[in-house]
Design a protein around this nucleic acid. Structure first.
Lengths: 124, 124
DNA sequence: ACTCTGTTTCGAAATCTGCCAACCTAGAGG
DNA sequence: CCTCTAGGTTGGCAGATTTCGAAACAGAGT
């Protein structure tokens, strides 16, 4: 996808470093972040994400054979990961390569930090 | 819910500290972890989770009015968060109180660490 | 009994998963 | 240029799952 597919999730719209536990999340922010979690909420997409994240980049032709699913189905799941802003794709010649968007990854990670409100579990 | 609802997700079955980016996740592990992400993949549940996580514990009677949804619907979403192993509930007298399960929270956080494989984004 | 809180049950509408078929792009060979 | 083949994506369709509310139910307090 050389023309850089639709960025459905605007990463800059998400507060970069405020954990879920820091303060109640408003509806707008939840609407932006939830699709990212949702994208990881399917076992196939989670494995795809894991495979993509564990190397600098990976060809679709290496992803598809790892599953008992048709090509179109894998393509569909990759599209959802793209639309969630979690990965990027680029066509190089015959093949399409996928790689993670580290910002998105970091963002999700920081949302799950619990350090700010120890009362809610950290110290109990 | 004093009799400690069905623990559908066995937290001990999840590798405690291996980030998604460390190595490709096998199908079994993905099947265990995906439901946790899925539970956070809905805007309502994400906000519920955030509200619960930002205080030591909170009454359902304080959660419901924050949404434009019926009581049964909120109850349904809370059930999904419970079944995902993300929160615990306890009836005390008239009211039911919810609180996060910090282990689950930490677990999800550690899955999103990117530090182990700098090549997949850190250094690019 | 009656009320209040929260859950469960059930059904309708919307969404998701997966496949097949068709399509588009890129490279190889005429 | 045209055709042929291979890699991926898109469109359309069944079947399963999800979301939500109305109604009924269960527990606690009055």
């Amino acid at each position: 996808m050389s023309k850089q597919a639709l960025p459905v999730v605007d990463l800059n719209a998400v507060a970069c470093c405020s954990p879920i536990a820091a303060s109640p999340m408003d509806a707008d922010q939840a609407a932006v972040v939830a699709p990212m979690f949702k994208a990881l909420g399917d076992p196939v997409r989670l494995r795809l994400m894991s495979m993509i994240a564990s190397v600098p980049e990976i060809c679709v032709c290496d992803l598809t054979p790892a599953f008992d699913l048709s090509g179109p189905t894998i393509s569909h799941h990759l599209k959802l990961l793209r639309e969630a802003g979690l990965v990027d794709s680029e066509r190089r010649g015959t093949w399409v390569w996928y790689r993670v968007k580290p910002e998105a990854f970091r963002q999700l990670g920081s949302l799950l930090e619990m350090s700010i409100t120890p009362a809610a579990g950290g110290t109990a």
